[in-house]
């Protein structure tokens, strides 16, 4: 299972898995920069169209670069469709979907969609979400409906708890050790059947290593008998021999399962020597 998940991630990062819209959800604590670099690293010979709403410097890997701040969505779509490669795979990167109003976002994505294109859109989750009077979903929710693969990026923070980190970031006190080349990635991949596969990984973009994230189980408290010594004049501790004997005691319930429960759910009553049982007395029947 774990092997399959890493294979799925590798195939997605190298654009070999069929998935038309990658949604990357990033935050101030961990930006999408390194994940995009990793996708580019894994996908050589790919025609990359970079649509910039906030990036100033044209990335070196971009085959085409468009500054969208002064262009209408229609012109953006025309630019993309006219630069789709017929021989190589085309990856369209949108550096931020936050600049497109929620009522236009589906139309915008639809205009860019093309069977030859893999679309990758980044959404910054820390941006405030405007309240709408209607019940229409907000941009983030809409995007998660449309996306075929969702990458949620989180930092690996060892010193601060999640709550402390959010407390600091929500006041724009950006702590140290964030935006690192190593990060946590929650991958949601929607299969054609509609089933969602969800895995969590630790990604190291410096070494290109991916491993499954293992939740640290709470360590069981070790019985430390030294704490019990010298508390009273009674002996509260157990010797090794006593402990061994205690572990070997067969508990009655377990014993019952082996000998009696084997009769397929029937209630079995075994008479003991002191039981006074009269076969002719109907009221004597224990059942």
């Amino acid at each position: 299972m774990s092997q399959n998940s890493v294979v799925l991630l590798t195939r997605l990062l190298s654009l070999k898995e069929s998935s038309s819209f990658y949604l990357v959800l990033d935050s101030l604590a961990q930006s999408s920069y390194y994940l995009i670099q990793e996708i580019v690293h894994n996908s050589p010979n790919t025609n990359i169209i970079y649509l910039s709403y906030e990036t100033i410097n044209r990335p070196k890997y971009a085959t085409e670069f468009l500054d969208c701040t002064e262009t209408t969505p229609d012109n953006v779509a025309k630019f993309v469709q006219s630069n789709v490669s017929k021989t190589n795979k085309t990856l369209v990167i949108i550096d931020s979907l936050n600049y497109i109003p929620s009522e236009e976002i589906t139309a915008f994505i639809t205009k860019l969609a093309n069977p030859l294109i893999t679309l990758l859109g980044v959404f910054h989750t820390n941006c405030p979400i405007p309240q709408q009077n209607t019940s229409y979903p907000n941009t983030a929710t809409l995007l998660t409906y449309i996306a075929t693969t969702i990458f949620e990026i989180e930092p690996i923070v060892s010193v601060l708890t999640e709550e402390e980190l959010y407390g600091k970031v929500s006041r724009l006190n950006i702590p140290v050790n964030l935006n690192s080349p190593q990060f946590k990635l929650v991958l949601t991949n929607r299969r054609k059947s509609g089933r969602s596969l969800i895995y969590t990984f630790i990604i190291d973009t410096a070494t290109h290593a991916y491993e499954i994230f293992k939740q640290h189980e709470e360590e069981e408290p070790i019985e430390d008998e030294r704490l019990l010594k010298d508390l009273t004049t009674f002996n509260l501790t157990t010797s090794n021999k006593q402990r061994l004997a205690r572990e070997q005691v067969e508990l009655p319930y377990m014993e019952a399962q082996e000998s009696l429960g084997s009769a397929g759910g029937a209630i079995v009553y075994e008479f003991e020597k002191d039981d006074d049982y009269d076969e002719e007395d109907p009221y004597e029947d224990p059942f």
């Binding site: 931020s96 936050n98 910054h124 979400i129 405007p130 309240q131």
Partner: peptide, 19 residues
């Protein structure tokens, strides 16, 4: 959540600027 609010505009500005 109110786009007309000063704190909404400033928060949106600063978060996007930090990105």
């Amino acid at each position: 959540t109110n786009p007309q609010d000063v704190s909404f505009k400033t928060t949106d500005f600063l978060v996007k600027l930090h990105h």
